Simulated scan of single mutants.
Amino acid sequence: MKNVLPVILFLCSSFLFAQEGTNMKKVVTPPEKVRFAFEKEYPEKTAVWSEEYVGDDDDEVRYEAKFNTEKNEKALAVYDNLGVLKAFELQIPLKQLPLKAQTYLKQNYSPKAIKEIAIVVDDKSKTTYEVGVAKDSKFYDVVFDKNGGFDVIIEKN
């Protein structure tokens, strides 16, 4: 009986650790071209790297660098395997969203539902705002154009 409690604790902690691991992206070391491009664009910044497969058949790899800016804001830079910057995302406060987007959010979501807000600039210099919201036990990205006009809602897994 004495040995049962440690075994149960071990199994529970292993289960919890396994569950946590499934929600996290694997930390990776990107190719040299990608690291060089990041270091050139964001000198003296330290990033935590992960990779994601995208494309129709998940045949393209993207390297994501998470780091803090000078103002201690959270940022994400996404590169392809050749070191080409595909997108840059910067977390911002609600007050920095265009007024039109703020109004839409106030009409459709409670303040507690809003989990994160970011400005995103893609490789074609297109600017959008993405607002992560939780509703009915699901997570969504509500996307607005550069002027704050509603664009689309994307359900996240």
Rank of each mutant, 00 (worst) to 15 (best):
F15Y: 14
L16N: 06
F17G: 10
F17L: 15
F17D: 02
F17H: 00
F17A: 15
A18N: 07
A18I: 06
Q19M: 14
E20P: 00
E20R: 10
E20L: 13
E20M: 08
G21L: 06
G21M: 10
T22G: 01
T22W: 03
T22H: 06
N23A: 14
N23P: 01
N23K: 14
N23R: 15
M24N: 12
K25V: 01
K25F: 07
K26N: 09
K26S: 13
K26A: 13
V27K: 15
V28M: 05
V28G: 07
V28Q: 05
T29V: 15
T29P: 01
P30V: 05
P31I: 10
E32T: 14
E32N: 12
K33M: 10
K33D: 09
K33T: 12
V34I: 10
V34F: 09
V34T: 10
V34Q: 05
V34G: 11
R35E: 15
R35L: 15
R35S: 14
R35K: 15
F36P: 00
F36G: 00
F36Y: 08
F36L: 11
A37D: 02
A37S: 15
A37T: 06
F38T: 06
F38R: 02
F38H: 04
F38V: 08
E39K: 06
E39Y: 05
K40V: 15
E41G: 00
E41T: 15
Y42S: 01
Y42M: 09
Y42D: 02
Y42G: 00
Y42A: 08
Y42T: 00
Y42R: 08
P43C: 10
P43N: 03
E44T: 00
E44Q: 11
E44F: 09
E44V: 00
K45D: 12
K45E: 12
K45L: 12
T46Q: 11
A47N: 02
A47V: 00
A47G: 04
V48M: 13
V48L: 14
W49P: 02
W49F: 04
E51V: 02
E51F: 03
E51R: 10
E51T: 07
E52C: 06
E52A: 11
E52K: 14
Y53Q: 07
Y53D: 00
Y53M: 04
Y53R: 14
Y53H: 11
V54G: 02
V54C: 07
V54E: 11
G55A: 08
G55R: 04
D56M: 11
D57Y: 07
D57H: 07
D58L: 13
D58H: 11
D59L: 01
D59G: 13
E60H: 07
V61L: 03
V61P: 06
V61S: 02
V61I: 15
R62G: 01
R62Q: 10
R62L: 13
Y63K: 04
Y63R: 05
Y63G: 01
Y63W: 03
Y63S: 04
Y63I: 02
Y63P: 03
Y63M: 03
Y63L: 06
E64R: 07
E64C: 05
E64Y: 05
E64F: 03
A65S: 09
A65H: 04
A65V: 07
